[in-house]
Amino acid sequence: MRQSANPESLVVTITRQGSGFKRWRLVLPALLWTVAFFVIPFLFMAVMSLWHRIGGEIVATWNLDNYVEFLTKPHLVKSLLNSIEISFCVTVISIVLAYPLAWIIAERVPARWQRTALILAILPFWTSYVVRSYAWLLVLSKQGIVNTFLLDVGIIAEPLAIASTRYATIIGFVHFFVMLLTLTIYANLKQLSPNYARAATDLGAGPLRTFWHVILPLTLPGIMVGAFLTFVLCIGDYITPKILGGSNELVLPQVIMLQIGRRADFPNAAAMSIILMAVVIIAYLLCARWLKMERT
């Protein structure tokens, strides 16, 4: 535009540069929405976490008792630890399972079948999320497919109690995140130029060394994004542990929902939610260096 001597385009240039308010106007709806329905509710919640439910009333007490109470009650701390342990296990297992699958699809499946292979790999992703957990209950319960099969074959004499334990929760989660991570890791592997692997081979590295020293480090940022997403989605989820894990071993979201549902104890629920969020922020800081949002 600078080269143009057309006076009209000069006018355009001026209006383009002079319309500061107009430009603001375009971001404004999204910003206002986020402030009104995300930031302000969050502030409401933060304030609520400092109050108390006494009798049937919520009283503005302005203290940290809810937090102190949480951290001094062993069964509540246990629920937080359960959440962290389960989310961590799920993240690690899902990556370990999904990476080879993504690699096989990217490197071993013929190019024209890769898309189909991927769509197939994430097809069950499209079942409803509540239904997916229910479906795993059909598989894992005492009269479920796995137990019936193992009993019939004679491997076990008594049905395994998988449902209503943390193992069922982990299986349900891993199922979902293997699909998600296969997709993201595949995208990562495809972005790599094949020249990296060729160069490594030319320099005398075997397939394993090439993978360990070249391919894996190059895909690490993508894996970390996936890992962070997995951890965050896992630790905040209520449905999967509720349906599959049952109530023998509660996770934090279940405890929060108990506060809301049974007792309408919003102050306590709010304090626990903020603790949950603090855990996510710590996880974020631990892998922050890989999580920069880049515009391509």
Binding site: T34, F37, F38, I40, P41, F42, F44, M45, M48, V232, L233, I235, G236, D237, Y238, P253, I256, M257, I260, F266, A269, A270, S273, L276, M277, V280, Y284
Partner: peptide, 17 residues
């Protein structure tokens, strides 16, 4: 920012508000 916050927390905040 909402991407990094659990749906449960977003829901609870809105419910309280």
């Amino acid at each position: 920012a909402p991407l990094t916050v659990s749906y449960l927390i977003i829901a609870l905040g809105l419910l309280i508000m």
